[in-house]
Design a protein around this nucleic acid. Structure first.
Lengths: 419, 419
DNA sequence: GCCATTTAATTCAACCGCTGAACAAATCGC
DNA sequence: GCGATTTGTTCAGCGGTTGAATTAAATGGC
């Protein structure tokens, strides 16, 4: 009764398209590149051959293609192993393609550049309250910031291979922001408003800019920052609203329309406080930033999100009773909602991100308590609740990283471009 | 800003293993076979070539292999199209491999045989209250039923390619039933108890029997019974407990340990009725069979699940006030829980299965009402709530079908066996 | 210091499976 | 019956992997 078979036995396999002659090389380029990206230390061609099951001859040929395409480079400090000819270590190229991550949020604009190795090469942030600013003006400012980031990347010899814009709201497949409540946006057509800017011009038929929900990208950032391999977790970001990014078996689950992760309106008190969504007792009314601040006796409805979180963390650290009680209540409400998700999706990890990250020392215990109480399977395998490793603006980093991860997953597009 | 890129842009690609020389043929066998399986009417070799992008020559060679392996047959009534040489239609072979689906439930044992085309060729059901029966005895009776089904399959010229056992409980990867509360099972090692029976003997290193949760298999059955192509839905089965199977992008999501779908203990009333799980106000206490029966003023705690459901449907159809009120309340509770799931996963369909299916006329309206009230995105794209198309014992059918679907998805294993 | 040993990477003929075009087969319309 | 049309097969050609032989570059024992 092998477990090996089980995990794939019952699930329907993914639909792979037709495999033509050239697909062979295409697939092996991806296999080898992914392996180089996932390796702990720079692997040798021989090691890759042993690991993938391909011949050393094939690996050599594939690696030659990758080096010619500036995706891979040979590491100088060759790893010594003992006798024999020393291996030449292979690493992802740090001077090849890079991803541009952008973010529009309530109180800041951000742009960052991430190279193929996942290193954040540049990170620009402009603080400003964008609620009173029109979408057009906000995007104009964002475009200027993007130009700055692009210039910095070019100075480093990097080539931008794509851009992703993080928005705190519901985004359509064509880049239309349906609704971003905390930003005051409704039906904002980002590509149209950016018309004329290089960001909006497709390259080789591929859109240069992808617009995506902030919580999804933050979860992706967390996925990439963690260890390689398939993992499943829920990434909860607490700002003014509460969003969740869902990673299942190592890939982001976006939902049928990309609108997954709306956890803020899970009812935690069906007969409870009315919510602006029309429902009652929604999580947001108990664990949202405003609710926590109010319960802690702080005014700060106008506080920037991260300021509010640090303020609360300071107070809690100092032992302020009202704050501690507010955080305990918020944690319990969050725990009720998260326990439902864990029961439903059988996750082994919950990550607290965004404004929750600095508050994790006080939020984790009640969340864990609710999970232990409500999750039947927690008795057999514990659920880890931990703060996010990425700090603020993790969505921009996640978006930028997704661009380069896409190249690692399907290098052919990039290789075709540079001939 | 093409939508095409978007849907895969941000998600991490699936990990494909190394692609060796022979993998090309292996992959194309799967591509062509899947295409034949998914086609509305028997496709021709030329049509397959046009659809897959492969050459007619390649398709011919691949189809020859498939016919030699008894997976595909030529359909007699050649589909006429007009001028030109008539095409020879290709269909899945009805006399090749078949899957055996088994089910142990509270009040029946079931076994069914499904051939490659998805047709249920045999379906045996033994009604009996299995709660007082020991796991050993239950599995012995099941083995006898399986032998009967196998004999019937052999008489039809079918070859059983695998078996799946559906159990209403939590199953480990190695076939250990951790907990099946309504059956009274705890830590039942199914493979060990079946030792000696052909079911427990691995063939070619692949386990002959896979044990899986009933709700997951019912959802798979619903997936296979519906139209082809990736779909995402939640399949809720209401029996004594409430389980859910989650299908995302056309494949079953099993969770990190295969324990996904525990929706029965989502809190719908946090300060509400205590539950045997230790929590409070769980869905099961409001929309479970016992709760509905009690609210309708019926005694029948000992009623078999399907009997109870039909009884309730009869009463509701006759206009019994208590029953209508009980169903409305249960529907509302179910709607609260389901709305949370739809918000979280952005699903476009919810299927009511098991005991809920006959009650759908009365349950759907309150469920839809709660979804409209609580799902923000429902304004842009409606959520369909509908009863399951498969009737009772859908888990056994789903399990049996998963065996043959696996062959369609990866035909190489089967082809290697028959030389 | 020299040489056997060991491991890494490359080269090259052989081979597998897809490609594209030419060809044979079978039916319809006139 | 004959051309038009579409299906299916055959076959030389080719891209890409395979496996063995070869070269490259280090370590370690004497």
């Amino acid at each position: 009764m092998a477990a090996v078979w089980h995990c794939q036995a019952v699930t329907s396999a993914s639909t792979v398209g037709a495999v033509r002659q050239g697909s062979l090389r295409e697939l092996n380029l991806a296999v080898v590149l992914r392996r180089i990206a996932a390796a702990e230390r720079p692997p040798s061609r021989a090691g890759l051959a042993a690991g993938t099951g391909l011949t050393r001859a094939t690996v050599s040929a594939v690696v030659d293609d990758l080096i010619a395409g500036r995706l891979v480079a040979e590491a100088e400090p060759a790893p010594r192993t003992g006798a024999g000819r020393p291996a030449r270590g292979l690493v992802l190229a740090a001077d090849g393609p890079a991803g541009l991550g952008l973010e529009v949020n309530v109180d800041y604009l951000a742009a960052c550049v991430v190279d193929l190795t996942g290193t954040v090469r540049h990170h620009l942030v402009r603080r400003a309250d964008l609620r009173p600013v029109s979408p057009t003006d906000a995007l104009t400012r964002l475009a200027a910031l993007a130009d700055e980031a692009r210039a910095a990347a070019v100075r480093d010899g990097l080539t931008l291979a794509g851009a992703v814009l993080a928005v705190p709201g519901l985004v359509d497949d064509d880049g239309l922001v349906r609704l971003a409540p905390n930003l005051g946006w409704r039906d904002v057509d980002v590509p149209a408003l950016l018309a004329g800017h290089p960001l909006a011009e497709p390259v080789d038929g591929v859109p240069a800019l992808v617009v995506e929900n902030e919580a999804n990208l933050a979860a992706l950032g967390e996925l990439y920052a963690g260890p390689a391999g398939p993992r499943s977790f829920l990434h909860v970001t607490g700002e003014i609203g509460i969003g969740a990014g869902i990673v299942l078996d190592g890939s982001l689950y976006r939902g049928t329309r990309g609108w997954s992760g709306e956890i803020g309106h899970v009812p935690v008190q069906p007969q409870g406080r009315p919510c602006r969504c029309g429902g009652q007792g929604c999580l947001e009314r108990y664990a949202g930033q405003e609710a926590i601040l109010a319960a802690a006796g702080l005014p700060g409805a106008e506080l920037p999100a991260d300021t509010a979180a640090t303020r609360l963390a300071d107070l809690a650290g100092a032992g302020d009773a009202a704050t501690l009680s507010a955080l305990a209540d918020a944690g319990t409400a969050l725990g009720v909602a998260v326990a439902g998700v864990v029961n439903l999706l059988d996750l082994d990890t919950v990550v607290l991100g965004g404004g929750y990250a600095p508050l994790a020392p006080w939020l984790c215990p009640p969340v864990v308590a609710e999970i232990s109480r409500r999750v039947l399977t927690a008795a057999w395998s514990p659920v880890t609740v931990r703060p996010a490793v990425l700090g603020a603006q993790s969505a921009a980093v996640g978006g930028a990283t997704s661009v380069v991860r896409r190249i690692v997953d399907r290098p052919t597009g990039w290789l075709a471009r540079t001939g």
